[in-house]
Design a protein around this nucleic acid. Structure first.
Lengths: 208, 208
DNA sequence: CTTTTCGTAATACGAACGTACCATAATGAT
DNA sequence: ATCATTATGGTACGTTCGTATTACGAAAAG
């Protein structure tokens, strides 16, 4: 045989190519030949490592979410250890906004996959829907922790606020993507709600 | 000549067919032959009234927003005349949620067009981006009115709240669409924020 | 050293798509 | 009555797409 090659590595390389070209042309417009050209390999190779286009798309989605998770983790690590609930939430939300090339592509493609999954049942069966659930749970717990330590308004419904923050962030992301809103205004709106939920002082519980 | 036919009527009929089939298969998967079959006309006829597919898609988007505007207006009319700011806002937001077949299709296709416009500059040049702006302005004014009459928290930032409500509603819609959330839970979250913004009593201004 | 298997390449195939072309019946205008 | 125009149908063309087929060199296995 020729030099045994690392399949996972090659698959990652090709999935990366898929993401790049999809970010440029749109997920709907990407063909196997485009992916092959972007990855610098032959069309046959793409077929070899992903037998069908559907499998390629699935793996691309998987790779996308993995990369995004790593990105968020990196942001959290950069915030220092134990930065407090509010700073953690800020890092989480701001990492999701499409403010640079990488996050723009992520947001665009994740949205594309979501919309696609409405009419494509094979994609809908793919388990990329529980990712939002995990984020929602994490945010809820952070808010609850802040409430217990008096850092957040005790009268707020933690889960509903978590859902709302994530929902707002998602739409803000799309608005930024289509050029309807600036990242600054989106961040301002999010800060507005964080100011509302969190107390500025760390001692006084909220009067109600 | 044959019986002179109303071009606008035919174009509307075909655009309607486009929306139906796109709602079923996804916007990316709709072909001119599908539209022709759905409208019960020949492929040539679709070409005749919309010379190119691009023009057909543009007109479909136009028709979609028109229908949605009419739908919202109908909801507002059904709420009775002068129902107060909160009821008006509720009608606006709830009309946007994909709770029945028609609104599901609308939400799916509007999202599809939005995502498409990120990578398709011809679509991006289409003026369907100022529609959200109009909604944002309308909501802002309604909240301001409520603040002036003491029906809403005077300390709230009307525009930011309007932006937030619309943003939340948009994501909630998508979540419902992909089956991640029920309409009831989405409505509950929206009500939570309306309860926060609006006072239950109509006289007492908010203490702050 | 032979044989089998793996990575890679080139290319062919059938289907589907958007568009273009040709045809024709019906009707308004002259 | 004739002619030009309009609405409609059928179909062919060129391209692109995903997939299948065939081939071949290189190295691990025996």
């Amino acid at each position: 045989m020729p030099k045994r090659v690392d399949h996972d590595e090659r698959r990652t390389q090709i999935a990366e190519a898929l993401i790049q070209v999809a970010g440029r042309q749109g997920l709907h417009a990407v063909g196997m030949r485009d992916v092959a050209a972007e990855a610098g390999v032959s069309l046959r190779l793409v077929q070899y490592y992903f037998e069908t286009k559907e499998k390629l798309l699935f793996h691309g989605l998987q790779h996308l979410t993995d990369r995004f998770t790593a990105r968020v983790d990196a942001r959290l690590a950069a915030a220092g250890r134990d930065p407090g609930p509010r700073a953690t939430i800020e890092a989480l939300l701001l990492a999701s906004l499409p403010t640079d090339a990488e996050s723009r592509i992520f947001h665009l493609l994740y949205s594309s996959y979501s919309i696609l999954s409405v009419t494509d049942e094979a994609l809908a069966a793919q388990p990329f829907i529980d990712k939002p659930d995990a984020a929602e749970n994490a945010l809820t717990r952070l808010i609850q922790q802040a409430q217990e330590t008096g850092q957040a308004d005790a009268g707020a419904d933690a889960r509903t606020e978590a859902i709302s923050l994530l929902a707002m962030t998602a739409t803000m992301g799309t608005s930024i993507l289509v050029g309807q809103r600036t990242p600054e205004s989106a961040i301002a709106a999010l800060q507005y709600h964080l100011d509302r939920i969190f107390n500025s002082s760390r001692t006084a519980p909220t009067a109600r």
